[in-house]
Design a protein around this nucleic acid. Structure first.
Lengths: 104, 104
DNA sequence: GAATCGCATAAGTGTGTGCTTATGTGTCGT
DNA sequence: ACGACACATAAGCACACACTTATGCGATTC
């Protein structure tokens, strides 16, 4: 189940940090390691988990592999969240921002 | 970190099932066990995890404990998601529904 | 073509996690 | 007050998971 892969992937704080780094733009595996005190194999393994969860996708460029946020994974989270919209608090500032962006 | 508690709580498929059961309305621990092949202690432990993640809140009624979805946890997920709104696909039907509900 | 670089994979290890059984705590009915 | 009930907690165990070191693989550089 991909829903499971997504939540399991995001359960690890290191992977969330990696994912948030990619929120600012595409980066390769080495660039992602900058300032993170993480070994190269560990980073590679984390990226593999994020990739199989469709939270991240790769774009090979020679011997580099650029990673970027994959909208597919995010869409699945949004769809999952939609099941609970009856319980969302009436005022969520972050949501207001989202609405504006989506209305364009 | 509460963000961590939330994603860790949702990483377990049994806890997601419990949470989704509560999406339809308030239930006590025994009612939640119906049709789930899960022991009473296991259910109690799962509810404790969901509760400490603020995904669920309890309402004691005599010797029963009714559980319901806690909007606070959902709000934190929405705020986390907001960081990636630049990567959301342009058309997400579920989101469209959300927008309508939020605009009332 | 040999060395180096960027990254992936394999194998092993310590820790976290979800389960079990057993027991504790508080509430209700009689 | 006593037993039954709803639930929480404790302790122990099997397994998953994130890390390590070592090695493999393809691309680049000289």
């Amino acid at each position: 189940m991909m829903e499971h892969d997504i939540f399991r992937a995001l359960a690890d704080p290191t992977r969330r940090t990696i994912f948030e780094k990619l929120a600012t733009g595409s980066l390769n595996a080495s660039a992602l390691r900058q300032g993170m005190e993480i070994s190269q194999p560990a980073m590679s393994q984390h990226l593999a988990v994020l990739r199989s969860a469709r939270l991240v996708r790769e774009q090979r460029e020679g011997r580099f592999v650029n990673y970027e946020v994959d909208p597919d994974g995010l869409a699945l989270i949004v769809e999952w969240l939609a099941k609970y919209r009856a319980y969302w608090p009436a005022r969520i500032d972050a949501l207001k921002l989202l609405l504006k962006d989506m209305d364009q």
